[in-house]
Write a protein that binds this DNA or RNA. Structure first.
Length: 176
DNA sequence: ACGAGGATGCTCT
DNA sequence: GAGCATCCTCGTC
């Protein structure tokens, strides 16, 4: 599933879940918002100019987690996609709390806006740079396949200043 | 609901 | 030394 094109995989990840379990604290989120980053073909990608110390995990096998620090403060996570050595990845931007929302409230320090942004998502799930390079198949941060329900909207990606014409953000419109 | 502005520190030029 | 794949708070409407 993770070895397809980054665009197909981005769409397929909607409705799947991300789960963590640290000690007795278990949290799980249904993925509802993602962005595709297409490596050397994508000026907005961290791997556009090739390999660096930071983006090394992007060059590993599909299913590897790429976690980076954003604006000096937050962590953001991607799932590496496509054949090994091709630095394509899907940024997980948001979701819906599914398991352990009390733990998420605790980690976030507030009761609202738990997982509606890439930095918030990582904070709520307890994902940090320690998890960079781990596997979402058998590592501490797991991807659980799921079926999406609802319509998919496509928009340009958030927070970037280049390649705005590419509609590589995918959002699951929830009819709730 | 929405927008402006500041915090913050790593990464690469 | 500039530029961020962001978030929060505090203004307005």
């Amino acid at each position: 599933m993770l070895d397809g094109s980054v665009f197909d995989v981005a769409e397929a990840l909607l409705g799947c879940r991300i789960a963590t379990a640290f000690g007795t604290l278990r949290t799980e989120v249904v993925i509802t918002e993602v962005e595709a980053y297409a490596g050397a073909d994508d000026p907005a990608s961290h791997s556009y100019r090739g390999r660096t110390p930071r983006n090394t995990a992007m060059f590993a096998s599909p299913g590897t987690l790429y976690v980076y620090r954003s604006y000096g403060i937050h962590w953001c996570m991607n799932v590496v996609v496509g054949e090994e050595g091709l630095p394509h990845a899907v940024l997980l931007r948001g979701g819906t709390p599914f398991v352990g929302s009390e733990t998420m409230v605790d980690r976030r320090g507030r009761a609202d806006h738990l997982t509606d942004g890439p930095g918030k998502l990582c904070q709520a799930l307890g994902v940090t740079g320690d998890h960079d390079g781990s596997s979402v198949i058998d590592g501490p941060v797991r991807l659980i396949p799921g079926e999406k329900q609802g319509m998919i909207a496509r928009t340009s990606r958030i927070g970037i200043s280049v390649a705005q014409d590419r509609l590589w953000r995918y959002v699951l419109e929830d009819g709730l």
